[in-house]
C-alpha cells in the first residue's frame, strides 16, 4: 500500500512570494517532513516509576517544560506534565518504546500518520511564526519546544536550530493543509522556496 502524505495535495516545488534577489538563508525553505515515527508517551498519574531510568535510543524522558532531549535520529519533546512526543527517523524504535515503557505505567500511541509536519528553514522562520502565534518567541531557545496556536490552529513547534532558524511544526493531519496555507501565506513577504 502506498502512503499519501498529509500535504501531498498542497505542497508543490517552486519559489513563491518576494523571492527575487534573495539567496542562502535569507530565502525561506519550506518542506514537508515525511516518514517520521511520531509517538505520544504519557505516564499514568498513579505511576510512581522514575522516568530517569527510561532509556529510549539512549535518551531519557525529562519532565521539564520546553525541554527537548535529542540525538542524531530522535527527538523527545516535552508536551505537558508526564507527557512527551517522540519524533524519530528510526521507524524500528517503536518496538524499543513498547518494551521500555511498560503498559502498566505508560500509554504509548503511534501518531505517525495523524500529524502533518512542516519544516521551515531560514533567517525569517521565527518572523513567520510571530505573525500568527501569540507565543513570545523571544524566550524560545535552540532545542526547545512548545505547544501553541497559529491562526487558531493548535500546533507544536520544535526549534531545531537558531543560526539560521530551523523549526518543525506539527499539527493534526486534518488541520495540516489549513496550517500549511497559513504558514505559506505569512511567508510570502519574505519569499520562500518549497522543497
Amino acid at each position: 500500500m502506498s502512503l499519501i502524505s498529509a500535504l501531498a495535495k498542497v505542497h508543490h516545488p517552486g519559489q513563491f512570494g518576494d523571492f527575487e534577489d534573495k539567496k542562502g538563508d535569507d530565502l525561506l525553505k519550506i518542506s514537508e517532513k515525511k516518514n517520521l515515527l511520531i509517538v505520544q508517551i504519557v505516564q499514568f498519574k498513579n505511576s510512581n516509576i522514575s522516568t530517569d531510568s527510561i532509556d529510549i535510543d539512549g535518551l531519557n524522558l525529562k519532565d521539564t517544560p520546553l525541554n527537548v532531549t535529542f540525538n542524531k535520529n530522535t527527538r523527545i519533546l516535552w508536551n505537558g506534565p508526564k507527557n512527551w512526543l517522540l519524533v524519530s527517523s528510526n521507524k524500528d524504535l517503536i518496538k524499543n518504546i513498547s518494551l521500555t515503557c511498560k503498559e502498566t505505567d505508560f500509554a504509548v500511541t503511534d501518531l505517525s500518520h495523524s500529524r502533518a509536519v512542516i519544516e521551515i528553514e531560514g533567517n525569517y522562520a521565527i518572523e513567520v511564526l510571530k505573525k500568527g502565534s501569540p507565543f513570545n518567541f523571544g524566550v524560545l531557545k535552540k532545542n526547545n519546544s512548545i505547544n501553541s496556536l497559529y491562526n487558531n490552529i493548535t500546533f507544536t513547534v520544535d526549534l531545531l536550530n537558531d543560526k539560521p532558524f530551523k523549526v518543525r511544526l506539527f499539527a493534526l493531519r486534518s488541520f495540516g493543509e489549513s496550517l500549511y496555507h497559513s504558514i505559506t501565506d505569512s511567508s510570502l513577504e519574505f519569499g520562500y522556496e518549497n522543497k
Binding site: P65, P81, F135, N147, L149
Partner: peptide
C-alpha cells in the same frame, strides 16, 4: 491581550486557554 501564567508552561496568551 490577557496573559495567564500556566504553572506548568509559564506565561501564555489567554487564547491558548
Amino acid at each position: 491581550m490577557l496573559y495567564i501564567k500556566c504553572p506548568h508552561c509559564g506565561m501564555r496568551s489567554q487564547n491558548e486557554f
